[in-house]
């Protein structure tokens, strides 16, 4: 059976290599993907359209913001699906995991974490807010923020972390993140544009159409950050304890 399963693997591999033979030359600026009207517009006009220096963020959050909204929804769905499967599946304390030991949280580890968590969280805000001008944005900032809560759960135990960020609050924050993103979209629709047409926000913000896009992008990045933070931690809490939401590492 193992040998038989190699046949499709090699078949697909051969197809992929075969197709790659007539790709445009590597790094050629005249290749279709670099030279198409769409790419030229992104490269040449991003600053004119949106005032955002980082064109990756502009493509992600504005030109293709509709994709990014659904990517955020995918993250939200992942969290809900895990919750749906694991909720009530195991009774609390009924099954003891093999690797569980009774030990107090380690003094050195907990004190280091006490020092480092605030720094991580401030850095997360920096990455989130700085997405316009440097690598960063909602997904990256959210992951760093979520990691700070996971670190607390790792060094103490899940109860300590959940006392600070309970599972209900997690799902609330995650849903609020979607609400922020889609809310900005629908608000710009009510102001007369299409869904997610941030430029229309100039009517309520005291800035130009381009700067309205700039600020709205920060808004949607905050929404993404909320969802990612909450779901990161909710996934860890559920998966690491098989849905029991208790115990340490």
């Amino acid at each position: 059976m193992k040998a038989a399963s190699m046949v499709p693997v090699f078949l697909v591999g051969f197809l992929l290599v075969f197709a790659a033979t007539d790709f445009p030359e590597w790094g050629n600026p005249q290749s279709p993907a670099s030279d198409s009207p769409v790419s030229s517009h992104f490269i040449g006009k991003t600053g004119v359209d949106t005032e955002v220096p980082n064109m990756v963020t502009a493509v992600l959050a504005d030109y293709r913001g509709f994709d990014t909204m659904f990517e955020t929804v995918v993250v939200f769905i992942a969290g809900m699906a895990v919750l749906a499967i694991l909720k009530n599946s195991v009774k609390k304390g009924s099954v003891r995991r093999d690797h569980e030991v009774d030990a107090e949280p380690d003094l050195i580890v907990t004190n280091m974490v006490r020092l480092i968590v605030p720094v991580i969280q401030i850095f997360a805000f920096y990455v989130l807010a700085h997405g316009h001008v440097s690598p960063g944005g909602g997904f990256q900032g959210g992951v760093i923020m979520g990691a700070s809560f996971i670190l607390i759960a790792l060094s103490w135990d899940l109860e300590t972390a959940l006392a600070r960020f309970s599972l209900n609050r997690c799902m609330g924050v995650a849903a609020a993140g979607i609400l922020i993103y889609a809310g900005i979209g629908i608000f710009s629709m009510f102001l007369g544009g299409e869904f997610l047409d941030y430029a229309e926000l100039e009517r309520v913000l005291p800035v130009s159409r381009e700067m309205a896009r700039y600020h709205a992008m920060l808004g949607v990045e905050i929404g993404v950050g909320c969802t990612v933070t909450a779901i990161m931690f909710a996934l860890y809490a559920n998966l690491s304890s098989e849905g029991k939401l208790e115990g340490g590492l």
Partner: peptide
Amino acid sequence: SYIFGGWTLDSYPRGVGI
């Protein structure tokens, strides 16, 4: 036809918006 984000076909190349 409905293009998200206001990247209409009149002013922008097709494919800039979704």
